[in-house]
Amino acid sequence: MNSEEKTPETEAQQPGADNEVQQATAAAGDPPSTDKDQIPSEEKAESKEKKHRKKKKDPLQEELDKQKEENSQLQERLLRISAEYDNFRKRSTKEKDGIYAEGVAGTVTQFIDVLDNLERALAASETEDDFTKGIAMVVTQFKAALEKLGVTEVDPAGGSFDPNLHNAVMHIEDDELGEGAIVDVFQKGYVMGDRVIRYAMVKVAN
């Protein structure tokens, strides 16, 4: 008999062998996972760790950011205070100059009348004696003192009428003279900077 032929006994044993193979396979369970199966889980873990690091800020960096913010606020405050102080200083200087100019103008106005009288006396003198020379010296010193104070004489003789500097007290009609021509000066004017201390009194033509 051929050895490959199945006997009834062999056929009877075959189902049992199949059962043993099935049980061994079931006991073994699922096949072990490979490295490829572990890669997605590792990537997820790394992603979570990165997110955690982003959320958890370095304490030193937080303190540095805080100091930068405080420094920026202090710089802005310093700039505002500096600007306010500069404006205050300019206002104070302007007010101080205004008070000084007003005080000088009020004082000079009183002395200008004295200077007018000295000049009239000098103009009326017909001789050049020592007395007349003395008056001339006083007038010269008087004018030099006014110049040191910033006071300038306004003598409009031969000019045109300017309402900002002159006070027209008389008007005449003369075809030979131009419009607004100053014919005569009754009293000279004086200015100190942009301030008119006294307007010149004049006679105006046309």
Score class of each variant (00 low, 15 high):
25 T>Y: 09
35 D>T: 09
8 P>N: 15
94 K>W: 03
59 P>R: 06
95 E>K: 11
56 K>G: 05
91 R>V: 05
97 D>K: 12
11 E>H: 05
55 K>S: 12
89 R>G: 00
14 Q>A: 10
93 T>F: 08
57 K>H: 05
52 H>L: 13
88 F>I: 11
9 E>P: 00
97 D>P: 02
61 Q>I: 07
39 I>T: 11
64 L>F: 07
10 T>M: 10
16 G>W: 05
38 Q>I: 07
90 K>V: 06
57 K>P: 04
51 K>D: 15
75 Q>F: 00
76 E>R: 02
72 S>K: 13
75 Q>N: 01
5 E>L: 12
86 D>Y: 05
81 I>M: 02
30 D>C: 02
42 E>L: 11
85 Y>L: 15
25 T>N: 08
54 K>H: 10
97 D>L: 13
14 Q>W: 07
28 A>K: 04
91 R>C: 04
45 A>R: 14
18 D>L: 05
63 E>S: 12
58 D>C: 03
33 S>R: 11
78 L>V: 03
5 E>F: 06
52 H>C: 06
45 A>C: 00
22 Q>A: 13
59 P>I: 02
30 D>L: 05
27 A>G: 06
67 Q>D: 05
27 A>E: 13
76 E>L: 01
60 L>M: 12
92 S>P: 00
23 Q>T: 06
19 N>T: 10
28 A>Q: 01
53 R>Q: 15
8 P>T: 12
51 K>M: 14
96 K>S: 14
45 A>G: 09
12 A>L: 14
95 E>H: 07
22 Q>M: 06
75 Q>D: 02
84 E>Q: 15
3 S>Q: 13
59 P>N: 03
7 T>L: 09
62 E>F: 01
66 K>R: 14
75 Q>T: 01
48 K>F: 05
89 R>D: 10
10 T>N: 08
76 E>K: 01
22 Q>C: 00
41 S>M: 14
97 D>C: 03
13 Q>S: 08
92 S>Y: 12
17 A>H: 10
92 S>Q: 15
15 P>N: 05
73 Q>N: 08
47 S>Y: 13
94 K>G: 06
73 Q>G: 02
64 L>V: 10
23 Q>I: 09
14 Q>T: 07
92 S>L: 15
17 A>Y: 08
3 S>P: 14
76 E>S: 06
6 K>F: 10
38 Q>C: 03
53 R>P: 01
33 S>I: 05
96 K>C: 13
88 F>P: 00
95 E>F: 06
80 R>F: 00
36 K>W: 08
4 E>T: 11
15 P>V: 07
10 T>A: 09
81 I>W: 01
10 T>I: 04
29 G>R: 08
76 E>F: 00
6 K>N: 08
24 A>N: 11
17 A>K: 09
46 E>D: 12
77 R>A: 09
7 T>D: 07
12 A>T: 07
